[in-house]
Every structure is written in C-alpha cells, then in structure tokens.
C-alpha cells in the first residue's frame, strides 16, 4: 500500500520511496529510509496535503507525492504503544516508541 491510502492514526513502516529523484532524495535525506516507522497524523481540511509524523517530526506532503511512498502496516500496531517489536535491532528501538499513542 502507499502512504496516500493510509488512514489517519495508522502506524506504518516505510518500504520504499519512489518518484522523481529530487523529491525522493529530499524525503530520504529527511529520514524516510526503508524500515523507518511513520504515522499518518491527519489530512488538511481541504483534503490535501497530508500530515505525517516521522522520527518525532511533523512533515506534510501532498497526496500526489504520497502515492510514491510504499509502506506496510507496522507489526503489532494494534497492541498499543511502546512495545512494538523493532524490525531491526539498531535504529527502531530508539525511534519507534509511542508513535501510536498520539493518534488523533
């Protein structure tokens, strides 16, 4: 699935960023590397753009571009916060916690 299809409050993991090089490079450099947890926080009142929470930072991109970001649902997203199993032993332990406690 892509970010554009996610529901507000959903906890996701970035799988791949596609699209034009300039756009995907910017997203990657902001930390959207594969394996990074991301949450769709909400959608602007006029339906576009969308607000994301990633690495503790709120970002907004347009729906058209969100189509380029493939994601999967985070494992254990339903269980609640802070104890989601980290996909890799290194980064996510520090980055994952509490993403879902703050859903709108």
């Amino acid at each position: 699935m892509t970010l554009a299809h996610a529901r507000p409050g959903e906890r996701l993991i970035v799988e791949k960023v596609g699209g034009e090089r300039a756009f995907r490079r910017r997203l990657l450099e902001l930390g959207f590397v594969p394996g990074t947890p991301v949450e769709l926080v909400g959608v602007a009142p006029l339906g576009d753009p969308i607000e994301l929470l990633m690495r503790g930072c709120s970002l907004s991109i347009r729906r058209g571009e969100a189509l380029w970001v493939s994601v999967r649902r985070a494992a254990g997203a339903a269980e609640g916060c802070c104890d989601a199993p980290p996909p890799a032993p290194t980064l996510e332990a520090a980055v994952t916690p509490c993403g879902s406690c703050r859903r709108r």
Binding site: R21, R24, R25, L28, E29, G31, V33, P34, T36, R55, G56, T90, L91, E92, A93, A94, V95, P97, C98
Partner: peptide, 25 residues
C-alpha cells in the same frame, strides 16, 4: 541514492541509544 542515504542513517541510528536521541523527548 538509497545506498548512500540508508548507510548514513543506519550509522546514525546505530548510535541513537548512545546519544540518548529518543524521539519521545
């Protein structure tokens, strides 16, 4: 691009716990 950026972030994330860089701060 993937190789460079992902390697850099992997490096930083590996040190995240040492740095106490926790997002919940």
């Amino acid at each position: 691009d993937d190789e460079v950026i992902a390697t850099r972030y992997a490096f930083l994330d590996r040190h995240a716990s040492v740095l106490h860089a926790r997002v919940d701060q």
